[in-house]
Simulated scan of single mutants.
Amino acid sequence: MLKCIQTIPLFEDIRMIFERDPAARNWLEVICCYPGFHAIVCYRFAHWLHRWHVPFFPRFVSHLGRFLTGIEIHPGAVLGKGIVIDHGMGIVIGETAIVGDYTLMYQGVTLGGTGKESGKRHPTVGHHVVIGAGAKVLGNIHIDNYARVGAGSIVLRDVPAHCTAVGVPGRNLCRVNPENFSLEPGHSLDPEAITIRTLVDRIEQLEQQLQTLKQTLAFSGSHTHATLS
């Protein structure tokens, strides 16, 4: 019986909410007050209708879910089990997107296309992936298992497994531990960002030294002129 329940995606979705979100205190709160879970429920029903080639109603259910939650998931998208959408407002998942099991997405994420091309035009996201707030993953690209996408990043190319994509456009960092990598924009381990920050700090120090030198020379000049007078 337990194995049967664990194979039902919605039960896994609820279980993962409790595992991922420390604010989740009881099942009634999750069922009634979590828009990410509501969006997943609407999607799973709409996707079931879509698989049976029911006209109109899958998109209508998706539209109702978007109206109620602010999260738009196309019925044609394929979402695995244990998906957690934290907060969720502004999330968009396109028609041909594929999202693997136990993926965590924060608000403002877009799994979208880059134009009007046909066929597979949206991203494929692997298992156990974390996508930070406001990240845009665009085109028919692959985000492999256990990868991470930093908040505010724009990802236009594949992200290998156990790597983290950060920046605009996204750059892959594969020499850091993704489990300890912060997705916050102000806590980046991007070597390019660190180098730029170091150069900016050095320029500020040199400017301060130059100002101090100018003030010293000006004081020395005025003191010498007063002495001569």
Rank of each mutant, 00 (worst) to 15 (best):
F37Y: 15
H38D: 08
H38M: 14
A39S: 15
I40V: 15
I40E: 06
V41G: 11
V41M: 14
V41P: 13
V41E: 01
C42P: 12
C42R: 06
C42H: 14
C42V: 04
Y43V: 06
Y43A: 00
R44G: 00
R44K: 11
F45M: 00
F45P: 07
A46F: 10
A46D: 06
A46I: 03
A46K: 03
H47P: 09
W48L: 11
W48I: 01
L49G: 03
L49S: 04
R51G: 02
R51K: 15
W52R: 04
W52D: 00
H53W: 14
H53F: 14
V54I: 15
V54Q: 00
V54W: 02
V54R: 05
V54E: 02
P55Y: 12
P55F: 13
F56C: 14
F56R: 10
F57A: 02
F57I: 10
P58C: 05
R59C: 11
R59H: 15
F60Q: 07
V61R: 00
V61K: 00
V61C: 01
V61Y: 00
V61H: 01
V61A: 04
V61Q: 01
S62K: 07
S62M: 02
H63K: 06
H63D: 01
H63Y: 15
L64Y: 13
G65Q: 07
G65I: 09
G65D: 04
G65M: 08
G65K: 09
R66D: 00
R66P: 14
F67Q: 09
F67V: 07
L68E: 08
L68M: 14
